[in-house]
C-alpha cells in the first residue's frame, strides 16, 4: 500500500485558509506602517518614539520605555562629596570627604545654607553619609566618631543614635522609611551588616554578616527602602545589589559584570517610589544605573552620567531622589552635586 496525498482530504475548510491569509497580510501591513511611522518620527525629531512629545503617553507601547531624566545642572563648592540627601522641604545635605570635611547644606535652588560640623576640627571628623528623617532632622554617619550624629536642620547638635551593639559600631549608609525607622549599614571590621532601628532606638532588624555568600556583605555602602518596606543594599565589595523584603528575606540580586545593567563597584542607592525606579551609583563605571522595580524582577532601564559631555561623572558615590523627583548625585572627583530632573 502506497501513500497518496490525494487519499487524505484537507481537514481545513477552504474558506478558513483564505481568512487566515487575509489576517496575516493585514498584520504585516500594520507592522510595516508602524515601522515607517517610527522611522519618519525619528528622522524628523532625532528622538526615539518614546521621547516624542504627544506620543510617549498614548498607550502601552510607549510605556515600555522609561524616559530618562534630563541633566539640569550642578551644585558646586563641595569637597569630594561622598553622600547626599534631600529633605522634605527640598534642602540638600552633602557630606565632604576632603577640605574642611563638613556637611554642606543648600536650599532647593542650590543656595548655600549653614554647614553642619560633626567634630571639632577637620582632622577629628570624617562624615560619610547623610539622611533626613521624616521630621526633618539630619542624621550623619561619621567614620572618625564611629557614630550616627543627629542635627536639627539649622545645624544644631541633637544627640546621636545609640549603637546597636554594646561593642560600638562603624555606621555607614543611612536611610529612613516613612515611619521614621532608621536603616543603617555597619562597616565594623568583621561585622558588615544592615540594621533597622526604630525612633526609640530599639533594634528592629539585622540583616547579614561579613562575607561573599548571598545575604552577606562586604562594605555595604548604600541602603534604601521603598514604600512597601523592601530594603535595597549596595554591597560594594561584592559588586552587587541585594534586595530584601521588610522581614529581611532575600528578594533578588543585581550582580557584577560588563553587560548592560551589570555593576562594577556599587555605592549609593536610592528609590523613586513614584516612578518605581531604583538608582544605583556604579563608582568605577562613573555612572548611575537605573532599574525598574515595579515588578518582582528588576529590569535595567537606563543610565545617567555615561557620556563625555557636561553630565559625565567621575567616581560618583552617593545618590538621592528629592520630593520633586530630582536625582542628586554626589560626583566625588568632579567636586559637585550633579542634578537630573524628570
Amino acid at each position: 500500500m502506497t501513500s497518496n496525498a490525494q487519499d487524505y482530504p484537507r481537514h481545513q475548510p477552504p474558506h478558513l485558509g483564505r481568512w487566515l491569509k487575509g489576517a496575516v497580510a493585514l498584520l504585516l501591513l500594520f507592522a510595516l506602517a508602524w515601522v515607517a511611522f517610527v522611522a519618519l518620527q525619528y528622522q524628523q525629531t532625532g528622538k526615539p518614539i518614546s521621547e516624542v512629545a504627544g506620543i510617549k503617553n498614548i498607550g502601552p507601547l510607549a510605556k515600555l520605555v522609561q524616559e530618562p531624566p534630563r541633566f539640569t545642572g550642578s551644585v558646586w563648592e563641595v569637597a569630594r562629596p561622598l553622600g547626599v540627601a534631600a529633605a522634605p522641604d527640598g534642602s540638600i545635605y552633602v557630606t565632604e570627604s576632603a577640605g574642611d570635611r563638613m556637611v554642606k547644606s543648600f536650599d532647593a535652588n542650590g543656595q548655600a545654607k549653614a554647614s553642619i560640623v560633626t567634630g571639632e576640627s577637620a582632622l577629628s571628623r570624617s562624615p560619610l553619609y547623610v539622611a533626613v528623617s521624616p521630621s526633618g532632622k539630619v542624621y550623619v554617619s561619621d567614620l572618625e566618631r564611629h557614630a550616627v550624629l543627629i542635627f536639627a536642620p539649622d545645624g544644631q547638635a541633637a544627640g546621636q543614635v545609640a549603637p546597636p551593639s554594646s561593642e560600638g559600631w562603624t555606621p555607614g549608609a543611612l536611610a529612613f522609611d516613612a515611619a521614621g525607622n532608621l536603616y543603617a549599614t555597619d562597616l565594623t571590621p568583621g561585622q558588615h551588616r544592615v540594621v533597622v532601628i526604630d525612633p526609640d532606638g530599639t533594634l528592629l532588624l539585622q540583616i547579614g554578616q561579613e562575607g561573599s555568600a548571598p545575604g552577606q556583605f562586604e562594605f555595604p555602602n548604600g541602603v534604601a527602602v521603598d514604600a512597601q518596606g523592601n530594603i535595597y543594599v549596595s554591597d560594594s565589595g561584592n559588586g552587587r545589589v541585594q534586595a530584601f523584603d521588610k522581614s529581611g528575606h532575600p528578594l533578588f540580586m543585581i550582580g557584577r559584570g560588563t553587560s548592560k545593567g551589570d555593576l562594577g563597584m556599587p555605592r549609593g542607592i536610592a528609590v523613586d517610589n513614584g516612578r518605581k525606579l531604583l538608582y544605583v551609583v556604579d563608582a568605577t563605571a562613573h555612572a548611575v544605573n537605573v532599574y525598574d522595580i515595579s515588578n518582582a524582577a528588576p529590569k535595567y532601564s537606563f543610565r545617567l552620567g555615561d557620556d563625555m559631555g557636561g553630565e559625565s561623572l567621575s567616581y560618583p558615590n552617593g545618590v538621592a531622589v528629592d520630593g520633586n523627583g530630582r536625582i542628586l548625585v554626589a560626583d566625588k572627583e568632579n567636586k559637585r552635586i550633579a542634578i537630573w530632573t524628570n
Binding site: L82, S97, S126, L128, L143, G172, L187, F219, N221, S236, G239, R256, G257, T258, D262, L263, G264, M265, R267, A283, T284, A285, H286, S314, Y315, N317, K332, E333
Partner: peptide
Amino acid sequence: AGCHRAHTAQAPDLLKASETTLCFTCHDGT
C-alpha cells in the same frame, strides 16, 4: 569589572580614571 572596562575605558590600563584615585575610592574607609 570592579575596576576595568573593556571597551569604555578612559585611562590607561582600561581604567575609567587615574589609578591612584581609584585606590583611594576604596581605601578611604568606605
